[in-house]
Design a protein around this nucleic acid. Structure first.
Lengths: 116, 116
DNA sequence: TGTAAATATTGATGCGTGTCTATGTCTCTG
DNA sequence: CAGAGACATAGACACGCATCAATATTTACA
Protein backbone atom coordinates (compact mmCIF):
# COMPACT_ATOMS: atom_id res chain seq x y z
CA UNK A 1 0.00 0.00 0.00
CA UNK A 2 1.21 3.43 -0.83
CA UNK A 3 0.94 6.76 0.85
CA UNK A 4 -0.32 8.14 -2.41
CA UNK A 5 -4.08 8.12 -2.59
CA UNK A 6 -5.80 6.67 -5.63
CA UNK A 7 -8.97 8.30 -6.94
CA UNK A 8 -11.01 5.30 -5.80
CA UNK A 9 -9.59 5.49 -2.28
CA UNK A 10 -10.02 9.24 -2.10
CA UNK A 11 -13.66 9.07 -3.05
CA UNK A 12 -14.36 6.28 -0.59
CA UNK A 13 -12.99 7.89 2.53
CA UNK A 14 -13.72 11.58 2.56
CA UNK A 15 -16.64 13.62 3.77
CA UNK A 16 -18.96 15.43 1.40
CA UNK A 17 -17.80 18.66 -0.19
CA UNK A 18 -20.40 20.61 1.68
CA UNK A 19 -19.43 19.31 5.12
CA UNK A 20 -15.83 20.40 5.35
CA UNK A 21 -13.16 21.70 2.98
CA UNK A 22 -11.55 18.87 1.09
CA UNK A 23 -7.82 18.54 1.51
CA UNK A 24 -5.44 19.35 -1.28
CA UNK A 25 -4.58 15.70 -1.70
CA UNK A 26 -8.17 14.47 -1.82
CA UNK A 27 -9.10 17.24 -4.23
CA UNK A 28 -6.27 16.19 -6.49
CA UNK A 29 -7.52 12.61 -6.69
CA UNK A 30 -11.26 13.23 -6.76
CA UNK A 31 -10.78 15.75 -9.55
CA UNK A 32 -9.19 13.00 -11.64
CA UNK A 33 -12.52 11.19 -11.55
CA UNK A 34 -14.55 14.30 -12.24
CA UNK A 35 -12.28 15.30 -15.09
CA UNK A 36 -12.75 11.84 -16.56
CA UNK A 37 -16.51 12.35 -16.52
CA UNK A 38 -16.17 15.95 -17.63
CA UNK A 39 -16.15 15.12 -21.30
CA UNK A 40 -19.39 14.57 -23.24
CA UNK A 41 -18.12 11.48 -25.01
CA UNK A 42 -16.80 9.87 -21.85
CA UNK A 43 -19.97 10.72 -19.95
CA UNK A 44 -22.02 9.01 -22.63
CA UNK A 45 -19.64 6.06 -22.66
CA UNK A 46 -19.95 5.71 -18.90
CA UNK A 47 -23.71 5.89 -19.16
CA UNK A 48 -23.85 3.40 -22.02
CA UNK A 49 -21.79 0.89 -20.07
CA UNK A 50 -23.54 1.47 -16.74
CA UNK A 51 -27.04 1.27 -18.16
CA UNK A 52 -26.30 -1.73 -20.31
CA UNK A 53 -27.40 -5.27 -19.61
CA UNK A 54 -25.52 -6.46 -16.51
CA UNK A 55 -23.66 -3.17 -16.13
CA UNK A 56 -21.16 -4.16 -18.75
CA UNK A 57 -20.74 -3.62 -22.47
CA UNK A 58 -18.53 -4.77 -25.28
CA UNK A 59 -16.26 -2.26 -26.98
CA UNK A 60 -17.60 -3.38 -30.31
CA UNK A 61 -21.02 -2.04 -29.35
CA UNK A 62 -19.62 1.20 -27.97
CA UNK A 63 -17.71 2.04 -31.12
CA UNK A 64 -20.92 1.98 -33.12
CA UNK A 65 -22.60 4.50 -30.83
CA UNK A 66 -20.27 7.31 -31.86
CA UNK A 67 -19.03 8.85 -35.04
CA UNK A 68 -15.49 8.73 -33.79
CA UNK A 69 -12.55 6.57 -34.71
CA UNK A 70 -11.98 3.33 -32.84
CA UNK A 71 -8.69 4.55 -31.28
CA UNK A 72 -10.46 7.60 -29.91
CA UNK A 73 -13.08 5.48 -28.15
CA UNK A 74 -10.32 3.23 -26.90
CA UNK A 75 -8.52 6.24 -25.50
CA UNK A 76 -11.60 7.50 -23.66
CA UNK A 77 -12.26 4.07 -22.18
CA UNK A 78 -8.69 4.01 -20.94
CA UNK A 79 -9.15 7.36 -19.21
CA UNK A 80 -12.29 6.11 -17.46
CA UNK A 81 -10.51 2.90 -16.54
CA UNK A 82 -7.50 4.69 -15.08
CA UNK A 83 -9.80 6.94 -13.07
CA UNK A 84 -11.21 3.81 -11.47
CA UNK A 85 -14.66 4.17 -12.98
CA UNK A 86 -14.57 1.21 -15.34
CA UNK A 87 -13.28 -2.32 -14.99
CA UNK A 88 -11.91 -4.10 -17.96
CA UNK A 89 -12.07 -7.75 -18.88
CA UNK A 90 -10.98 -9.47 -22.03
CA UNK A 91 -12.95 -12.49 -23.13
CA UNK A 92 -11.64 -14.02 -26.30
CA UNK A 93 -11.27 -11.37 -28.93
CA UNK A 94 -13.66 -9.01 -27.24
CA UNK A 95 -13.06 -6.52 -24.44
CA UNK A 96 -15.81 -5.83 -21.95
CA UNK A 97 -16.02 -2.83 -19.70
CA UNK A 98 -17.99 -2.86 -16.48
CA UNK A 99 -19.17 0.17 -14.53
CA UNK A 100 -17.99 0.35 -10.94
CA UNK A 101 -21.28 1.53 -9.55
CA UNK A 102 -20.03 1.59 -5.97
CA UNK A 103 -17.36 4.06 -7.02
CA UNK A 104 -19.98 6.18 -8.78
CA UNK A 105 -22.08 6.06 -5.63
CA UNK A 106 -19.12 7.17 -3.52
CA UNK A 107 -18.39 9.98 -5.91
CA UNK A 108 -22.02 11.06 -5.78
CA UNK A 109 -21.87 11.05 -1.99
CA UNK A 110 -18.83 13.32 -2.05
CA UNK A 111 -20.49 15.73 -4.47
CA UNK A 112 -23.94 15.99 -3.06
CA UNK A 113 -23.99 13.92 0.07
CA UNK A 114 -25.17 15.25 3.39
CA UNK A 115 -24.53 12.15 5.46
CA UNK A 116 -21.26 10.60 6.68
CA UNK B 1 -37.18 29.94 -22.53
CA UNK B 2 -34.78 28.46 -24.98
CA UNK B 3 -34.55 25.12 -26.66
CA UNK B 4 -30.93 25.02 -25.58
CA UNK B 5 -30.49 23.25 -22.27
CA UNK B 6 -28.45 24.89 -19.54
CA UNK B 7 -26.27 22.71 -17.28
CA UNK B 8 -28.59 23.42 -14.36
CA UNK B 9 -31.65 22.36 -16.33
CA UNK B 10 -29.94 19.28 -17.72
CA UNK B 11 -28.93 18.05 -14.32
CA UNK B 12 -32.40 18.63 -12.90
CA UNK B 13 -34.38 16.69 -15.43
CA UNK B 14 -32.56 13.59 -16.50
CA UNK B 15 -32.38 10.09 -15.14
CA UNK B 16 -29.26 8.70 -13.50
CA UNK B 17 -26.38 7.62 -15.70
CA UNK B 18 -26.86 4.04 -14.70
CA UNK B 19 -30.53 3.88 -15.59
CA UNK B 20 -30.46 4.75 -19.26
CA UNK B 21 -27.95 6.18 -21.71
CA UNK B 22 -27.82 9.95 -21.44
CA UNK B 23 -28.61 11.85 -24.61
CA UNK B 24 -25.95 13.69 -26.52
CA UNK B 25 -27.45 17.03 -25.51
CA UNK B 26 -27.72 16.21 -21.82
CA UNK B 27 -24.20 14.81 -21.82
CA UNK B 28 -22.96 18.03 -23.34
CA UNK B 29 -24.47 20.14 -20.58
CA UNK B 30 -23.83 17.88 -17.61
CA UNK B 31 -20.22 17.54 -18.64
CA UNK B 32 -19.86 21.31 -18.35
CA UNK B 33 -20.59 20.97 -14.65
CA UNK B 34 -18.33 17.98 -14.20
CA UNK B 35 -15.53 19.68 -16.06
CA UNK B 36 -15.91 22.68 -13.80
CA UNK B 37 -15.45 20.43 -10.77
CA UNK B 38 -12.73 18.45 -12.49
CA UNK B 39 -9.96 20.76 -11.44
CA UNK B 40 -8.33 20.45 -8.01
CA UNK B 41 -8.40 24.17 -7.34
CA UNK B 42 -12.04 24.56 -8.35
CA UNK B 43 -13.04 21.50 -6.35
CA UNK B 44 -11.41 22.97 -3.28
CA UNK B 45 -13.00 26.36 -3.98
CA UNK B 46 -16.41 24.73 -4.28
CA UNK B 47 -15.83 22.85 -1.03
CA UNK B 48 -14.57 25.93 0.76
CA UNK B 49 -17.65 27.90 -0.23
CA UNK B 50 -20.12 25.09 0.38
CA UNK B 51 -18.75 24.15 3.78
CA UNK B 52 -18.39 27.73 4.94
CA UNK B 53 -20.64 29.49 7.39
CA UNK B 54 -24.05 29.89 5.74
CA UNK B 55 -22.93 28.20 2.54
CA UNK B 56 -21.29 31.36 1.30
CA UNK B 57 -17.84 32.86 1.39
CA UNK B 58 -16.10 36.10 0.56
CA UNK B 59 -13.57 36.12 -2.26
CA UNK B 60 -11.12 37.83 0.06
CA UNK B 61 -11.05 34.70 2.24
CA UNK B 62 -10.78 32.38 -0.74
CA UNK B 63 -7.75 34.14 -2.18
CA UNK B 64 -5.81 33.52 0.99
CA UNK B 65 -6.46 29.77 0.88
CA UNK B 66 -4.34 29.29 -2.24
CA UNK B 67 -0.91 30.23 -3.40
CA UNK B 68 -2.31 31.49 -6.64
CA UNK B 69 -2.75 34.93 -8.05
CA UNK B 70 -5.99 36.80 -7.45
CA UNK B 71 -6.97 36.80 -11.14
CA UNK B 72 -6.58 33.04 -11.26
CA UNK B 73 -8.97 32.53 -8.34
CA UNK B 74 -11.35 35.00 -9.93
CA UNK B 75 -11.21 33.00 -13.15
CA UNK B 76 -11.99 29.71 -11.41
CA UNK B 77 -14.91 31.25 -9.55
CA UNK B 78 -16.25 32.48 -12.84
CA UNK B 79 -16.10 28.99 -14.32
CA UNK B 80 -18.00 27.55 -11.35
CA UNK B 81 -20.51 30.38 -11.61
CA UNK B 82 -21.10 29.87 -15.31
CA UNK B 83 -21.57 26.16 -14.75
CA UNK B 84 -24.40 27.03 -12.39
CA UNK B 85 -22.67 25.75 -9.28
CA UNK B 86 -22.08 29.07 -7.54
CA UNK B 87 -24.22 32.14 -7.09
CA UNK B 88 -22.60 35.52 -6.87
CA UNK B 89 -23.59 38.55 -4.88
CA UNK B 90 -21.76 41.80 -4.45
CA UNK B 91 -22.09 43.57 -1.14
CA UNK B 92 -20.15 46.77 -0.99
CA UNK B 93 -16.61 46.19 -2.09
CA UNK B 94 -16.79 42.50 -1.41
CA UNK B 95 -18.06 39.66 -3.55
CA UNK B 96 -19.72 36.68 -1.97
CA UNK B 97 -20.18 33.33 -3.59
CA UNK B 98 -22.86 30.91 -2.47
CA UNK B 99 -22.98 27.19 -3.23
CA UNK B 100 -26.10 25.99 -5.02
CA UNK B 101 -26.48 22.85 -2.98
CA UNK B 102 -29.65 21.78 -4.78
CA UNK B 103 -27.70 21.77 -8.03
CA UNK B 104 -24.95 19.72 -6.40
CA UNK B 105 -27.60 17.32 -5.14
CA UNK B 106 -29.09 16.98 -8.61
CA UNK B 107 -25.66 16.37 -10.08
CA UNK B 108 -24.99 13.72 -7.46
CA UNK B 109 -28.30 12.06 -8.32
CA UNK B 110 -27.33 11.90 -11.97
CA UNK B 111 -23.93 10.43 -11.18
CA UNK B 112 -24.78 7.88 -8.58
CA UNK B 113 -28.50 7.95 -8.17
CA UNK B 114 -30.63 4.86 -8.40
CA UNK B 115 -34.01 6.50 -7.92
CA UNK B 116 -36.04 8.71 -10.23
C1' DT C 1 -13.04 64.83 -5.67
C1' DG C 2 -9.39 61.83 -5.13
C1' DT C 3 -7.18 57.87 -3.26
C1' DA C 4 -7.13 53.13 -1.71
C1' DA C 5 -8.94 48.55 -1.61
C1' DA C 6 -11.48 44.54 -3.69
C1' DT C 7 -12.57 42.19 -7.64
C1' DA C 8 -12.93 41.49 -12.65
C1' DT C 9 -11.08 41.63 -17.32
C1' DT C 10 -7.49 41.37 -20.87
C1' DG C 11 -3.78 39.47 -23.24
C1' DA C 12 0.11 36.38 -23.39
C1' DT C 13 2.29 31.85 -22.70
C1' DG C 14 3.21 27.12 -22.03
C1' DC C 15 1.24 22.76 -21.18
C1' DG C 16 -2.66 19.45 -21.44
C1' DT C 17 -5.86 16.86 -24.28
C1' DG C 18 -9.18 15.19 -27.94
C1' DT C 19 -8.77 13.55 -32.33
C1' DC C 20 -6.81 11.26 -36.23
C1' DT C 21 -3.84 7.85 -39.10
C1' DA C 22 -0.73 4.22 -38.90
C1' DT C 23 0.75 0.32 -36.68
C1' DG C 24 1.18 -3.28 -33.14
C1' DT C 25 -0.73 -7.22 -30.42
C1' DC C 26 -3.59 -10.85 -29.49
C1' DT C 27 -7.01 -14.45 -30.55
C1' DC C 28 -9.72 -17.32 -33.21
C1' DT C 29 -10.36 -20.15 -37.23
C1' DG C 30 -9.60 -22.40 -41.73
C1' DC D 1 0.65 -21.61 -40.05
C1' DA D 2 -1.63 -17.80 -42.26
C1' DG D 3 -5.06 -14.57 -42.50
C1' DA D 4 -8.71 -11.82 -40.48
C1' DG D 5 -10.89 -9.40 -36.91
C1' DA D 6 -10.93 -6.80 -32.29
C1' DC D 7 -8.70 -3.78 -29.62
C1' DA D 8 -4.63 -1.10 -27.93
C1' DT D 9 -0.65 1.84 -28.58
C1' DA D 10 2.32 5.42 -30.82
C1' DG D 11 2.99 9.66 -32.83
C1' DA D 12 1.32 14.03 -34.70
C1' DC D 13 -1.48 18.12 -34.63
C1' DA D 14 -4.67 21.62 -33.39
C1' DC D 15 -7.18 23.53 -29.90
C1' DG D 16 -8.29 24.28 -24.97
C1' DC D 17 -7.03 25.85 -20.61
C1' DA D 18 -4.51 27.09 -16.17
C1' DT D 19 -1.73 30.60 -14.94
C1' DC D 20 0.36 35.12 -14.64
C1' DA D 21 1.25 40.35 -15.02
C1' DA D 22 -0.98 44.38 -16.23
C1' DT D 23 -4.95 47.04 -16.29
C1' DA D 24 -9.81 48.30 -15.77
C1' DT D 25 -13.86 48.80 -12.80
C1' DT D 26 -16.32 49.56 -8.79
C1' DT D 27 -17.01 51.01 -4.08
C1' DA D 28 -15.97 53.27 0.19
C1' DC D 29 -14.19 56.92 2.61
C1' DA D 30 -11.34 61.05 3.80
Amino acid sequence: MSLELTPVQAVACCSPLTREPVSEEVAEQVSVMLKALGDPVRLRLMSLVASHQGGEACVCDLNDAFELSQPTISHHLKVLHEAGLLEREKRGVWAYYRARTEVLANLAAVIGGSER
